[in-house]
Simulated scan of single mutants.
Amino acid sequence: MKYHLSLISVAALALLSACNNNDAPEVVGGPADPMADKLANAAPVELPPMVKESHQYRCKDNSLIFVDFMSDDKTANLRTEKDGAPTKLTAAEAGKPFEGAGYKVEGSGKQITATLPGKSAVSCKG
């Protein structure tokens, strides 16, 4: 009886070792990427600036403006209504006035000077 059990276990091991014996070649590297060279030589991606400070200003003419100063110190978004569409203003370099679409904002922080299209410059406090 012991002889039959050992033959059965040897036969079972032989059958199990034959499982999943696949002769198909294994692909190690995968297909070549047609854009690999372009991606390797591409310029680094610059993320858009995020909001650094948001201020609501009351101007001398009693109007309200809303300005979001961005983290790159060269971009600001100006809104003339709290939930209005923003107008993107840019500065040539950090510390220079933000301008765009007839708008101009000089300064940042608690006090600015704002010029709106068709109006003269006014002082505004936050």
Rank of each mutant, 00 (worst) to 15 (best):
K2S: 07
Y3E: 05
L5Q: 04
L5N: 06
L7P: 04
I8E: 10
I8W: 10
S9L: 15
L15K: 01
L16W: 09
S17T: 12
S17C: 13
S17E: 14
C19H: 08
C19K: 08
N21D: 15
N22L: 15
N22P: 15
P25E: 08
P25N: 08
E26P: 04
V27A: 08
V27N: 10
V28Q: 01
V28D: 03
G29D: 13
G30D: 03
G30A: 00
G30P: 03
G30W: 02
P31G: 02
P31S: 01
A32Q: 04
D33Y: 06
P34L: 05
M35D: 15
D37T: 06
K38D: 13
A40F: 03
N41P: 00
A42Y: 03
A42E: 11
A43N: 07
V45M: 15
V45G: 09
E46T: 15
L47V: 15
M50Y: 14
M50R: 15
V51F: 12
E53M: 11
E53A: 10
S54E: 12
S54V: 10
Q56G: 09
Y57S: 01
Y57C: 00
R58H: 11
K60V: 14
N62M: 15
N62A: 09
S63C: 05
L64A: 03
I65L: 08
F66V: 03
F66G: 00
F66E: 00
V67T: 02
V67W: 09
D68I: 12
F69V: 10
F69G: 03
M70Y: 13
M70H: 12
D72L: 04
D72A: 06
D73V: 13
D73P: 14
K74N: 11
K74T: 14
T75P: 13
A76H: 10
A76M: 13
L78Y: 03
R79K: 12
E81H: 06
E81W: 01
K82N: 12
D83L: 08
A85G: 07
P86D: 03
T87D: 11
T87H: 05
K88W: 09
K88S: 12
K88N: 06
T90E: 05
A92W: 00
A92Q: 02
A92F: 06
E93H: 14
A94T: 15
K96M: 15
P97A: 05
P97F: 05
G100N: 06
G102D: 10
G102C: 01
G102L: 04
Y103E: 04
Y103I: 10
K104T: 11
K104Y: 03
V105E: 06
G107H: 06
G109I: 07
K110T: 14
K110L: 09
Q111S: 07
I112Q: 02
T113P: 04
T113L: 08
A114P: 06
A114H: 07
A114M: 06
T115A: 01
P117C: 01
A121L: 09
A121M: 05
V122G: 00
C124Q: 08
